[in-house]
């Protein structure tokens, strides 16, 4: 017992002070890309050629990027001869509408707005989610899971992962939805009592991600269910996921932060 107490003392209190302050993010983190307009040489297609998932295309305004497809691999940035594409460390990426993930120079990312009305009243202070892993690589699950640990302590925001869809207010889905998981995803969704939300975490759940060309999958949860929140990344940083969840609940403005 004494050892446990000593360890407890040594390990200390480590829950991150977020959202009061931002935790230190790695220098090389690839978050929100900044795209510069008017600098692309005529006819240049370097980024498009470098991208493994057709997430970026040249256009008259500059590169157009679909963050729902992007794997944040940074290859386009590496290849661009003019330095037009630059991944910043801004972790905020979550949006409500799929269409908002289309970005180009001059179009700011429209970060997720809070739920409204009845949903906000019901879920704003207590959101129970059933996590469904539907055919990805288990990478997003790693970062979804980590939010439940003491470092992030998701519970303090009233958000919790629950064991049964019957106890849930919605589903949080990772993976492109493989053909083999389609039925299970539908059944899980149906088992959640309404009103309910659907949250797509990661490039796979939004668009199929690296598997988007595979016939074995459905190109994301949007092909089956209405999606309320899109959180891009491959996988998204835990902070990106948490930011999205808190925005959806309108908790970030409330806490007056970030």
């Amino acid at each position: 017992m004494i050892h446990i107490l000593l360890s407890r003392w040594r390990q200390g209190h480590r829950t991150l002070p977020y959202p009061k302050t931002l935790p230190a993010l790695p220098e090389r983190l690839r978050g929100m890309p900044s795209l510069q307009g008017g600098a692309c040489p005529a006819g240049c297609e370097a980024c498009q050629k470098a991208c493994p998932v057709e997430a970026i295309h040249p256009s008259p305004e500059g590169p157009r990027m679909d963050l729902g497809h992007c794997l944040f691999c940074g290859r386009c940035q590496e290849t661009c001869p003019e330095g037009v594409i630059r991944f910043t460390r801004d972790h905020r990426l979550a949006v409500r509408d799929r269409e908002h993930l289309q970005v180009f120079p001059g179009r700011e990312l429209q970060l997720a707005a809070a739920l409204e009305g009845e949903l906000k009243r019901l879920l704003g202070r207590s959101l129970k989610l059933r996590v469904v892993s539907a055919g990805g690589c288990n990478g997003c699950e790693v970062d979804v899971n980590v939010l439940g640990t003491l470092a992030w302590d998701l519970g303090r925001f009233g958000i919790q992962y629950v064991a049964s869809p019957r106890h849930a207010d919605g589903i949080l889905l990772c993976g492109p939805v493989t053909a083999n998981m389609e039925l299970a995803v539908r059944k899980t969704y149906e088992a959640v009592p309404g009103p309910k939300v659907v949250i797509a975490v990661g490039a796979c759940a939004i668009s199929g991600g690296p598997f988007r060309y595979q016939q074995e999958q459905r190109g994301g949860v949007g092909s089956l269910l209405p999606v309320d929140l899109h959180i891009p990344g491959c996988p998204p940083h835990p902070l990106t996921i948490l930011d999205g969840l808190l925005r959806l609940l309108g908790r970030l403005e409330e806490e007056g932060r970030l």
Binding site: R28, L29, L71, G139, A151, P235
Partner: peptide
Amino acid sequence: FCGRIRGDWLNLTAEACGSRLGRD
């Protein structure tokens, strides 16, 4: 403790390459 510390190890990988899972 370990739940948190596992994240610390992943963060070291991110420090090296930007991705907690060592992507790319």
